[in-house]
Amino acid sequence: MFDADEDAVVKLTVLTCEEGQMTGSGFLVEPDVVVTAAHVVAGAGAISVQTPGDDVVTAVVLGTDPSTDTALVRLETPVDVTPLELAEEVPSRGSELAVLGYPLGAYTVRIARGVVAGLPMPVDYGDQQVARAFTTDAATNAGNSGGPVVDERGMVIGLLSGGREWADAEQTRPVEGTNYVIPIPDVRSGVEQWSNLEGTDNAGCGKDPDPEAPDLEPSHPADEPVAATIANMLNAHGEAINRGDYESAFAMFTPRAQESLGGLRAWGDALDQSYWTEVEVLEAVETDVGATARVALQTEDLTDNGERCTAFVLNYTFVLSDSGLLIDKAKAASRSNC
Rank of each mutant, 00 (worst) to 15 (best):
V313M: 14
V289C: 06
P103C: 07
D168C: 04
V61H: 00
E239H: 10
A249K: 04
V81F: 09
E283A: 15
G126R: 04
A296T: 08
P120Q: 05
A169K: 05
G163W: 03
M121S: 12
A71P: 00
E85V: 13
M22W: 12
S48G: 09
D124Q: 08
R113I: 05
V49Y: 06
W166K: 06
D55A: 14
V10M: 07
A213M: 11
L234Y: 09
S95V: 03
V60K: 15
G143N: 06
V29G: 03
N235W: 04
P214K: 13
P66M: 08
F27G: 05
E224Q: 15
T229R: 14
G290V: 04
L15I: 01
D288W: 10
P66W: 01
E286C: 02
A240F: 08
R294C: 09
K207L: 10
A330G: 09
A249Q: 04
V285L: 15
N242E: 08
L100V: 02
D32P: 00
K331Q: 14
A131W: 10
P185R: 08
G162C: 07
R74L: 07
F2N: 07
V81K: 07
G20S: 08
D168P: 00
H39C: 05
P221T: 07
D5H: 07
Q129E: 13
A266E: 11
E259T: 08
A291R: 03
A59D: 04
E283Q: 15
F253G: 02
A37H: 00
S145K: 01
M233H: 11
S92P: 01
E283P: 11
A231R: 03
T82F: 11
R110F: 11
I327P: 00
L12Y: 03
L160Y: 09
D272K: 15
T178Q: 13
Q193W: 02
D32S: 13
L12W: 05
D245Q: 04
D32V: 01
V115W: 10
G45Y: 04
E259Y: 10
V56K: 05
W267G: 06
L216M: 14
K329W: 10
V295Y: 08
D288A: 13
T317W: 12
D65Y: 03
D304P: 04
Q193G: 03
Y102R: 00
R153T: 07
D168N: 09
G94K: 06
F312T: 02
Q50N: 13
E6D: 12
E89L: 12
Q129T: 14
G190D: 01
A59M: 05
H220E: 11
P78R: 06
A8V: 02
V35F: 05
A293Q: 07
N144Q: 06
D201I: 03
A293E: 03
F312H: 15
A266F: 10
T140P: 05
Y180D: 02
P83C: 11
V14H: 01
F318M: 11
G238K: 02
P148Q: 06
A37R: 00
A296L: 14
C205L: 04
T13D: 09
A133S: 10
V175C: 10
G53H: 12
S323C: 07
E192N: 14
A133R: 01
T200G: 07
M252Q: 12
R153K: 13
A42I: 01
A257I: 00
V49N: 03
P52D: 06
L119E: 11
V29Q: 05
L72Q: 04
A142R: 14
G143R: 02
